[in-house]
């Protein structure tokens, strides 16, 4: 996630080969499994490496063919695809228009056991890619999630439009069986209706409501910083 972790920021700078402290807000590159071998040009998006979506799909198929394990090991990951902070996971779920699953427990070993219980379901054909995942041992992290009951370990959350709050639509105890979890996730997905967002009015209303996101690393995309200043100046004039 751009601007949410300094180590990631430095890594992305290396991938793009930009001057220190000037990382743009989007980054793209195809890399080998070692995480260092470049398999494509890097840039702000896939269009730096591929002419269009068909060319990208074709290029990805060619790359996958060079790595036999790519197909063999698909959907058999050893960990949940966690976003490292619950507040960030909630925001990402809102940005992606996906539901959020938050696992919670009083201590790390118990949390690991809950995450382990979700693992095979999270990488199943039915659910892979359908949820964003967050995990925490801190009750304070659950405050933005309305409806959280005590002693529940798996929370299925519908993110709010700005990703700063969410509504718990299903919750299960740590003792829930895989079948119970599977049924709860399937039911939640069936009911979930992704929001339709208009970019411009979303931003305008966000400013009006005083909702702003503060990244961990200060934004260094000059184009975006200028656009933000111009947008706010126009808004002040209209008020």
């Amino acid at each position: 996630m751009t601007y949410e972790n300094m180590d990631e920021y430095k890594f992305m700078e290396g991938i793009l080969g930009v001057k220190s402290g000037t990382l743009p807000n989007t980054i793209f590159c195809m890399l080998g499994p070692d995480g260092t071998t470049r398999l494509s040009r890097s840039g702000r998006g896939p269009f730096f490496a591929y002419a269009n979506a068909i060319a990208m799909a074709s290029g990805m198929n060619l790359l996958a063919a060079k790595y036999p394990n790519a197909r063999k090991n698909a959907l058999s990951d050893s960990q949940l695809p966690l976003v490292k902070r619950v507040d960030l996971a909630l925001n990402v779920a809102s940005c992606d228009n996906r539901m959020l699953i938050v696992t919670t427990a009083a201590d790390k070993p118990s949390l690991k056991a809950v995450d382990q219980k979700l693992l095979s379901l999270s990488w199943s054909e039915q659910f892979a890619g359908q949820f964003v995942y967050g995990s925490t041992t801190k009750p304070a992290d659950l405050k933005p999630l309305a409806g959280t009951e005590q002693d529940k370990a798996i929370l299925v959350v519908e993110p709010g439009p700005y990703g700063v709050s969410g509504k718990v639509v299903a919750q299960l105890p740590a003792a829930a069986t895989t079948e119970q979890i599977q049924q709860a996730l399937a039911a939640a997905l069936k009911k979930f209706e992704p929001l339709v967002k208009s970019h411009r009015s979303h931003i305008q209303n966000g400013y009006n409501l005083g909702i702003e996101w503060e990244s961990v690393v200060e934004e260094s995309d000059a184009q975006s910083v200028r656009a933000k200043q111009a947008f706010r100046a126009r808004q002040r004039l209209q008020q």
Binding site: T2, C29, P33, G45, Y67, N69, P159, P161, I203, I211
Partner: peptide, 20 residues
């Protein structure tokens, strides 16, 4: 897993507003 990586990173806000 020996799988290659499609690296795409973005910031979870636009003009400072989250949710997009």
């Amino acid at each position: 897993s020996g799988r290659p990586i499609l690296l795409v990173s973005g910031a979870p806000s636009c003009l400072g507003v989250p949710g997009v």
